[in-house]
Amino acid sequence: MLKIQDLHVEVDGKPILKGINLDIEAGQVHAIMGPNGSGKSTLAYVLAGREGYEVTKGSVLYKGQDLMDMTPELRAAEGVFLGFQYPVAIPGVSNIYFLKAALNALRKHRGEEPLDAIDFMKLSKKKAALVQLPDELTKRSVNDGFSGGEKKRNEIYQMAMLEPSLAVLDETDSGLDIDALKVVAQGVNGLRGPDRAMLVITHYQRLLDYIVPDVVHVLINGQIVRTGDKNLAKRLEKEGYSEVRDAAQL
C-alpha cells in the first residue's frame, strides 16, 4: 500500500526527516511514536501534500504510484486521508456541505455518480453515530467553536464518510480525555479492514491500548530508530524515549 524509501525532507532549508523507510501493507495498522520535534507531524504533512515541505531525497510509493507527484486533492481522491493534529476552523463553510463536495469529488474521480442529498444525509447520520458526533455539529461551520474532543471526533467522522485506503492519523489522541479517547478509538477500529491501512502517529502509548497496532516504529530526530510489535510501545511507556535514544546512540 505505502512504501517509503530513504525519505529526506527539509522545511525552510532545515533537514527534518533524514532517511525514513517504511512499508505498510493493506490491512495493517502501523504506529509511529516519538518525542516532540522528532518529525512525526512532518511525515504526516508530507504524505498529505502540504506546501513548504521539500523532499530532497528518497521516494514515496502509494499503490505503486509516486505520491509526491500528486496534488493534495488527487491524493485524497486516490484514497489518502490525513486526520489533523490541529483541525482548522473554517467559519462560514458548513461541515456537511464541504464534505459533500469532497465526497462527490472523490466519487467523480472513481467514475461514480454523485450522491444525492437524501443518500448523503443517510450516510452522514450513520457515520456521525459511529463517533457519537451530534447531528447538529455536522451541520455547523467546520470545527468552528468545537471543543478539542469534538474536533477529533469530527476528523474520524470525516474519515468514515470518505472511506480512505490509507489513513494517517496525526496525534488523534492529543487533547482527549479518556472517555473521548475511547469513542475516537472505537470509531477508528470500526474502520479497520483488509483493504485499509493506517498510520497512527502518537506521542503516548495510551492511544495504542485502544487502537492496537500491528507494527510500532520509534521516530527520533528524523529517523526510525526502532521497529517492533505492540510490546515495543509498552516498553517505551515504561522506559521513556531516552532509553531508546541512548541505545540508538543519537
Partner: peptide, 21 residues
C-alpha cells in the same frame, strides 16, 4: 489545505472560502 486534503479541488476550495467570507 484542509479542504484540499479532504479532496476538494483547489479552485473549488478557493471559491468556497471566498464565498464564506
Amino acid at each position: 489545505f484542509y479542504l484540499r486534503a479532504r479532496g476538494v479541488p483547489e479552485d473549488f476550495a478557493l471559491a468556497m472560502l471566498t464565498y464564506a467570507f
